[in-house]
Amino acid sequence: ETGKELVLALYDYQEKSPREVTMKKGDILTLLNSTNKDWWKVEVNDRQGFVPAAYVKKL
C-alpha cells in the first residue's frame, strides 16, 4: 500500500509485555508511529505493538 513506511528489523526482539511484538532480524515491518524516540509502534502479521527504536531502521 502506498503511504506506508517500512522498517527493517536489525536484531531479534522477544516481546516482554502484551503491548510489544516479537520480530526476527531481517523482518520488514510496517511503521505506524515513530514519535517516541525509544519505542516505535509497528504492525507485523496483523498484530500491532511496540519495538525498541534502536532495533529497527527506516527503509
Results as ranks from 00 to 15, higher is better:
E20Y: 05
E15Q: 13
A53R: 12
L6S: 08
M23S: 00
K16L: 09
E43F: 07
G26C: 08
T22G: 09
K16D: 06
P52S: 01
E20V: 04
D12S: 08
M23C: 06
L59K: 04
K4R: 14
T2A: 13
G49S: 02
Q48A: 12
F50V: 07
V44H: 15
L31Y: 02
E15T: 07
E1D: 15
W39I: 02
S34P: 06
L6C: 09
T35V: 10
V42Y: 01
G49R: 02
E43T: 07
G3C: 13
G49Y: 05
A9F: 01
L29D: 00
V7L: 11
N33L: 09
T2G: 14
K4C: 12
V21I: 15
G26A: 04
G26F: 05
K25S: 07
L59Q: 06
F50E: 04
E5R: 10
V56P: 00
L6E: 06
L32C: 07
N36A: 09
N45D: 14
K16I: 07
V21F: 12
Y11I: 10
K16R: 14
E5L: 11
G3F: 14
G26P: 00
L6A: 07
G26T: 02
L6G: 03
L8H: 04
A53L: 02
Y13D: 01
D46K: 11
G26V: 00
V21A: 06
D46F: 12
W40I: 05
E1T: 15
A9G: 03
K57E: 13
L31K: 00
V56K: 01
K37S: 13
L32H: 06
D27M: 14
P18Y: 09
L8N: 02
K25I: 06
N36Q: 09
I28T: 06
Q48E: 10
K16N: 10
K41M: 14
N33R: 06
L29R: 00
K37H: 12
D27W: 11
K57R: 13
P18I: 10
E5S: 12
P52C: 03
L29N: 01
K58S: 08
K58A: 08
G26Q: 02
K37L: 09
G49H: 02
V21N: 04
R47S: 06
P52R: 03
L10K: 05
E1S: 15
K24M: 09
L6T: 08
Y11A: 11
N36C: 09
D46G: 15
R47L: 07
L10P: 00
L29T: 01
Y13R: 03
M23R: 00
V51C: 03
D38L: 12
G26D: 06
K4F: 12
K41L: 15
L29M: 14
Y55D: 03
K25R: 11
T35P: 04
S17R: 08
A54H: 13
Q14C: 10
R47G: 04
K57M: 15
W39H: 03
E5I: 15
L10Q: 04
R19G: 15
V42G: 00
Y11D: 07
T22W: 04
D27N: 08
R19E: 13
W40C: 04
E5D: 12
V56I: 07
V51M: 01
T2Y: 15
I28Q: 04
V7G: 12
R19L: 15
P52H: 02
P18Q: 09
S17G: 13
V21D: 01
A53N: 03
E15H: 09
Y55K: 06
Y13A: 00
K41H: 12
T35E: 15
E43R: 10
T2H: 14
L59D: 04
D27P: 00
K25W: 03
Y11Q: 13
Y55I: 06
A9T: 04
L29Y: 11
Y11S: 07
T30I: 15
D12Y: 04
W40G: 00
K37I: 10
D38C: 13
K58P: 11
Y11L: 09
T30F: 13
E15A: 15
F50M: 09
T2P: 12
Y11G: 05
A9Q: 01
G3Y: 13
E5Q: 13
E1Y: 05
K4A: 12
D38R: 12
W39L: 03
S34G: 12
L8V: 15
